[in-house]
């Protein structure tokens, strides 16, 4: 009898401690498997979930540019998310995001399945830098291209490295990233380029010409070109009618070149009368 009780207890213990836990674990696994298949893998659903975010290999972006933008900067602008997939990227949105940047003239987005996205940037090339400064803050240099479009701030060291001429004194209110066109800038560029070729004895290094705000006296007088050559240390422009003044400046340079007026130090277009040319002896 005692052996029988002992056997029952042993079987009960075996059931509670071994068989029941195994049964529970197996039940859990099968229920879990069923729901895994049903909900996560989409099996047993009459219709698969077509809204699922596309899967695919992670893609990489290849950036090619004719400008100074770095790939990291471009990733930031297009809001690059490494977790997304090539087919989930909206190339049109990406192109619009890039072209909304003032310095990007055109962007081409090309996808190559399965994992490559190529961004070809055609950036505006600065021919001048536009310097602006608000009270209490640093000078900001804006790039200006040959079409007169003002675009993103460029680094001061870039201005120095490229030896860009910089303009100061243009009406600041109108400057917005990528929208403002400065009338006459193309003429300035052509003028400087021509002068570099034709009047090299006056402008030994024409790219170092700078335009600065003529602040002393009456600020509305306009802008000044300060040359680093021996002649025309100052050329003063009025704010309005820049193109006309540039044309007059062009004529003057020609006359000066012909007559070799080495002593001429200042040309002032800002005065309503004819151009005033001050010689060094008059200063």
């Amino acid at each position: 009898m005692s052996a029988g009780i002992s056997n029952t207890q042993t079987w009960g213990r075996l059931f509670r401690r071994v068989l029941l836990p195994i049964f529970l674990v197996l039940t859990l696994i099968s229920v879990g498997g069923f729901y895994y298949n049903r909900w996560i893998r989409g099996y047993y659903n009459e219709q698969a979930n077509l809204e699922t975010k596309p899967l695919g290999p992670e893609f990489f972006i290849r950036v090619d540019t004719n400008g100074s933008s770095s790939p990291d900067e471009v990733y930031t602008w297009v809001d690059y998310n490494a977790q997304t997939t090539l087919m989930a990227v909206n190339a049109v949105d990406m192109q619009q995001m890039l072209e909304a940047r003032g310095h990007v003239k055109r962007a081409e987005i090309t996808k190559e399945f399965p994992d490559e996205l190529r961004i070809q940037l055609y950036e505006r090339q600065p021919i001048l830098a536009l310097a602006t400064q608000e009270a209490g803050s640093d000078i900001i240099f804006w790039g200006v291209d040959a079409e007169g479009v003002v675009f993103k701030p460029i680094q001061e060291n870039f201005v120095a490295e490229m030896r860009l001429p910089f303009l100061d004194g243009i009406a600041l209110d109108a400057i917005e990233d990528g929208v403002t066109e400065i009338v006459g800038v193309t003429s300035v560029y052509e003028l400087l380029s021509n002068a570099k070729l034709n009047l090299y004895h006056y402008f030994q290094d024409i790219r170092t010409i700078s335009l600065e705000q003529f602040y002393f006296g009456e600020p509305e007088l306009g802008s000044i070109i300060i040359t680093r050559g021996d002649t025309y240390k100052k050329v003063i422009f009025a704010t309005q009618g820049l193109s006309d003044q540039i044309e007059r400046f062009r004529e003057l340079l020609t006359i000066s070149g012909d007559r070799e007026l080495d002593l001429t130090q200042e040309i002032d277009f800002s005065i309503n009368q004819d151009v005033i040319i001050r010689k060094a002896s008059e200063e």
């Binding site: 996560i40 893998r41 989409g42 099996y43 698969a48 077509l50 596309p54 899967l55 695919g56 087919m87």
Partner: peptide, 22 residues
């Protein structure tokens, strides 16, 4: 065409299967 190409990929992806190459 990206739209047409997406169609089969999306259907395949809905079964948690990735498309490695086309």
């Amino acid at each position: 065409d990206e739209g047409i190409l997406k169609e089969p990929i999306q259907v395949i992806n809905s079964f948690m299967v990735k498309v490695d190459e086309i």
